[in-house]
């Protein structure tokens, strides 16, 4: 190799390193074992879909030297996952895909002794809106008809959702309170099972995330009635929001990745870098758009602050709903 060649190679290496300061920093620490990638929910729901998608992106671009191993621990509205992650003996190799039960479950079950501020912030991948869905065969095409139908059935109208005190039940309880509705609520172990039983008309309506209902919507089986988002969703421009109807209410599910309590700073930096790269990938950006998620990128300090405000607002929500 000639001198100039070597010089060129060195220069380009230096340039590469200079262009990616984060990557160079993260090289300090690398996983030595497969990474326990715990999911706070059962298979098929929104959190599960996102975890599998993230894993696939990481694998596709070979972003980790050890694989992410997704495991569903949905028991007890995510309490099983919280306990598993907070009692792990290997915090540097344990990360958690969360949803809002990250806030609500420790509130509702104080005896678990989980303090979420001890967890390590990693990345906020986006927030997932809620939409009210009915089956096409119900003949209901707008929210007014939905209200009429629920009222005419006098407590026999059946809606399904995730576990009691979890996201779906909060949204449905808000709606019932605002419009004085009497709804029979059936808890399921995940959003996937909820969507399936709406497709089979075992239940009459759901508040699935768009990602969970999209396949059935595109096949003409589900009808969206109202979105519980701040603005109309780009993928569903004709669906009004709860705000347009005069209710100051919007609700999103956080799609965040957090590290186990006691994770070392080096490992936290590694995962923050990893998930930043996944977040910036074309695949994830396309996923956010096609599945109607809103971006809400935050750094570690902002995430901690966000957790604190979410815990407070959920405390109020649960209290006002009599939970």
């Amino acid at each position: 190799m000639t001198k100039t060649m070597r010089g060129l190679v060195q220069m380009s290496c230096a340039a590469l390193i200079a262009m990616s300061p984060m990557a160079a920093f993260a090289q300090d620490w690398e996983p030595r074992r497969p990474i326990d990638f715990t999911i706070m929910a059962g298979p098929g729901g929104g959190a599960d879909q996102i975890a599998r998608f993230i894993q696939s992106v990481a694998e596709q671009y070979d972003m980790t030297n050890r694989p992410l191993v997704p495991t569903n621990r949905g028991g007890g509205s995510g309490a099983e996952a919280l306990i598993h992650v907070s009692s792990t003996s290997d915090p540097d190799h344990t990360i958690l895909v969360t949803l809002n039960s990250f806030f609500t479950t420790p509130l509702r079950q104080e005896n678990l002794g989980i303090d979420i501020q001890t967890f390590t912030p990693v990345a906020m991948m986006g927030v997932d809106p809620f939409v009210l869905w009915v089956h096409t065969d119900s003949g209901i095409t707008n929210f007014e008809q939905f209200l009429q139908q629920v009222r005419s059935m006098d407590g026999e109208f059946v809606m399904g959702g995730t576990g009691t005190g979890q996201e779906d039940s909060i949204v449905i309880a808000f709606m019932s309170g605002a419009y004085d509705l009497d709804i029979n609520y059936i808890p399921y172990d995940g959003g996937g099972a909820v969507a399936r039983d709406l497709a089979g008309q075992q239940i009459m309506a759901t508040v699935n995330n768009p990602a969970e209902a999209k396949g059935f919507y595109e096949a003409g089986q589900f009808v969206p009635l109202v979105a519980f988002s701040d603005e109309r969703l780009p993928a569903y421009p004709d669906v009004p929001t709860m705000r347009e109807m005069g209710h100051d209410f919007s609700y999103y599910n956080q799609r965040a990745v957090v590290g186990a309590p006691g994770m070392s700073d080096e490992a936290a930096a590694y995962y923050a870098d990893l998930f930043t790269r996944i977040y910036e990938s074309d695949e994830w950006q396309a996923y956010l758009e096609s599945e109607s998620l809103s971006p809400l990128w935050m750094n570690a300090d902002e995430q901690r602050a966000y957790w604190a405000t979410q815990v407070e607002s959920h405390r109020e929500l649960l209290a006002s709903l009599g939970e």
Partner: peptide, 22 residues
């Protein structure tokens, strides 16, 4: 909708390959 844990993983694979099961 996955009927078993294994098919849940297959499902994740399909999504990344750009296919929408449904």
């Amino acid at each position: 909708i996955p009927g078993s844990p294994t098919t849940a993983i297959l499902l994740g694979g399909m999504v990344i390959w750009g296919l929408t099961p449904g």
